[in-house]
């Protein structure tokens, strides 16, 4: 892999128990590729652990949430001239062994975004029932908007090239960014590709997703998707 072209970003918030292992795994799989941990103002030792594991760390001055942290990484990568950026979450759910497949797909397909997909072969065994239902629902919603099926629209294990990087450094959804980001790219006639990958359980800590948060997620994302669709439809009509 060309270290001059690829940057791996790891957004992390209070992940001291997992982030060190994640960074070491990434460095084993992709030697020479810089790893940037974006510390979203953690209250634990996330930044120190990541540094000790060999990552560069960018610390946000206050907690921005996942979208804000990822966008900060995209902005820095764009400024530093990187051609490709792959996001790997700091909780250890994304298996770094699939980074190579995502990077190769990014380089060879000409697509602006490559998604590491858990469900490309139709298996939902890694998801809980609620999550599987949610993913099926968003697949149905996104199918006519994107004009093609997407198997794992909520996956955060994604790689982007410089064209997408430019778009995302200007405009990126701040809460629950994955689905809206797909719509943003599609409206700009960018293409995406899915490659199969496996995801693991979080290495430490507990997921904070509750029933109320799931409902909020659905309403929030639906609203974001339709606002994006309407916004670009209006731009398109205006020419």
């Amino acid at each position: 892999m060309n270290a001059e072209k690829l940057l791996i970003i790891v957004p992390a918030f209070n992940e001291e128990a997992a982030v060190g292992h994640v960074v070491r795994e990434i460095r084993e799989v992709t030697p020479g590729v810089p790893v940037l941990v974006i510390d979203d103002c953690s209250t634990d030792q996330t930044a120190a652990v990541a540094r000790a594991a060999g990552a560069k760390v960018m610390s946000l001055p206050h907690h921005l949430g996942l979208g804000g942290a990822v966008q900060a990484g995209y902005k820095l990568a764009f400024e530093l001239g990187y051609q490709y950026v792959i996001r790997v979450d700091g909780d250890g759910q994304h298996d770094p062994r699939y980074i190579t497949a995502i990077f190769e797909a990014l380089r060879n397909s000409g697509c602006q975004m490559v998604i590491g997909s858990r469900f490309l072969e139709g298996k939902f065994d890694q998801a809980t029932l609620v999550r599987a239902l949610g993913i099926r629902f968003f697949r149905l919603v996104l199918r006519p908007i994107l004009g093609r099926p997407v198997h794992d629209p909520t996956s955060g294990f994604v790689g982007v090239n410089r064209d997408a990087l430019q778009v995302f450094s200007r405009s990126f959804p701040l809460e629950y960014p994955e689905i809206e980001a797909l719509v943003v790219l599609q409206r700009r006639k960018f293409r995406f590709l899915e490659v199969p990958c496996r995801m693991r359980r979080r290495m430490a800590g507990r997921s904070t997703i509750t029933v109320f948060k799931s409902l909020y997620y659905i309403v929030h994302v639906l609203l974001g998707v339709f606002v994006n669709v309407l916004k670009y439809e209006r731009k398109r009509r205006r020419g």
Binding site: I38, K56, M58, S59, L60, P61, H62, L64, G68, Q71, A72, K75, L76, E79
Partner: peptide, 10 residues
């Protein structure tokens, strides 16, 4: 602003 501060500090 927070992102810019973080990038500049980096």
């Amino acid at each position: 602003l927070a992102q810019r501060v973080a990038i500049l500090e980096y």
